[in-house]
């Protein structure tokens, strides 16, 4: 199987994807967009895991990815529920509006 994708390429892709997800989380003001960024980061991590399982020819990586997808789904459900709750409370999805942590 010489036409395997080189491991480093997939890692770079996963890294780039992760960085994009992080940028989305850090730089967007909308709460939904922050969640989307988190989702992207999770998927990037999943991609890195699949690439690693291919590299070392073990199925553990792929099993972990299925776990991650479940967790991500649950987490998104909870997150969206929180966002809906917050939006009902304050009437806005702007992250800058939430400053109660500031002293």
């Amino acid at each position: 199987m010489n036409s395997l994708v080189p491991y480093s390429h997939t890692l770079v892709l996963a890294g780039g994807l992760f960085f994009l997800g992080a940028a989305c989380t850090a730089a967007r003001r909308s709460l939904v967009m922050i969640l989307i960024g988190v989702e992207v980061m999770l998927n990037a991590a999943g991609l890195a895991l699949v690439a690693a399982s291919l590299r070392w020819q073990q199925l553990d990586g792929q099993a972990l990815v299925i776990f991650i997808m479940c967790v991500a789904a649950a987490e998104v459900a909870v997150g969206l529920a929180l966002i809906v709750h917050c939006q009902r409370r304050t009437g806005s999805l702007d992250a800058d509006r939430y400053r109660l942590l500031k002293d």
Partner: peptide
Amino acid sequence: WTSGRLSTYLK
């Protein structure tokens, strides 16, 4: 840094 803004904390 203690701005209370979520994005800052995430960063």
